[in-house]
């Protein structure tokens, strides 16, 4: 979705009608559940469930109350069309979405406006935000680390954007034979869920490697879940099997007393 190699510094302040027309068409594609991003749409409710439950638990919010995330600042790194930003904004969070692909930002902005949501979308890298001193209660880097050139540096930046007492979420593919078979061969070649070449298996990050990078930055894993597609229900589920892809929540050991981890590496 995102490449950290920044190619443009277009800030999007002066958008001409032809561009808007183009972005509107792209917005339809980002937000078309049957379009190019169909797999993400299918996955979205599942990952949003993990995010919202963990955020609610960490900040002691009640998901059954209106605007449960009011007052929380959340950063989505590699926000794409805003598939994750919008639900969090609807739950009351103050959401910032950054993407290094300039074309994604107006797409996300137009859609949020249609939805009546206020989201701060920017063409930026997480490194730039860290440098400018902005900090967030929750920092999300979902399905993004597999697209960056220097994962350890990227993790350092993501953790660096976390405010004190905040949480970090990462999700990506594991580096296993199963993830190669399902994540690349099946998804790109057999089922054609994704364009060929979307992912490079060599860039996938096993949980142990992810944990090592996170721990090097002073956080520890709080919870990890695997994603599993159930073809009978045509739905993604959260599972303890992290061999294909996974999502994890990280916190500072200072914020919470250490407990027995409920996962195995």
């Amino acid at each position: 979705m995102l490449d950290t190699e920044q190619t443009s510094t277009n800030t999007g302040h002066t958008v001409d009608p032809a561009e808007v027309e183009k972005f509107t068409k792209m917005a339809a594609s980002w937000w078309d559940p049957q379009g190019d991003f169909r797999p993400l749409h299918k996955l979205n409710p599942t990952r949003i469930r993990f995010l919202t439950e963990q955020i609610a638990k960490h900040f002691d919010r009640d998901l059954d109350s209106p605007l449960p995330f009011a007052g929380l600042r959340i950063l989505d790194v590699g926000c794409g069309g805003g598939l994750v930003c919008e639900p969090l904004a609807r739950l009351g969070a103050d959401v910032t979405g950054v993407d290094a692909t300039p074309a994604n930002i107006p797409v996300a902005q137009i859609h949020a406006e249609q939805m009546g949501l206020e989201i701060d979308y920017r063409v930026a890298t997480v490194a730039e935000l860290v440098e400018s001193g902005e900090r967030f209660d929750a920092v999300l880097a979902l399905e993004i680390i597999e697209h960056v050139n220097d994962p350890p540096a990227f993790v350092t930046d993501v953790v660096g954007a976390r405010a004190e007492g905040g949480v970090v979420f990462m999700s990506t593919f594991n580096k296993t034979l199963r993830s190669f078979a399902l994540g690349i061969v099946a998804a790109e070649y057999v089922l054609q869920w994704l364009p060929k070449g979307t992912h490079d298996w060599r860039r996938f990050v096993p949980p142990a490697e992810m944990f090592k990078m996170i721990e090097a930055n002073g956080l520890r894993p709080e919870r990890i879940k695997g994603f599993m597609f159930n073809p009978l229900l045509d739905k993604w589920m959260l599972t303890d099997d992290t061999s294909v892809s996974y999502i994890a929540c990280f916190k500072s050991p200072i914020d919470q007393p250490p407990v027995e981890p409920e996962f195995a590496l």
């Binding site: 299918k42 949003i48 919202t52 919008e86 639900p87 939805m115």
Partner: peptide, 11 residues
């Protein structure tokens, strides 16, 4: 609504 998702969402 509980997940903050759009109610008219195709999914």
């Amino acid at each position: 609504r509980r997940l903050g998702l759009d109610g008219g969402d195709g999914q």
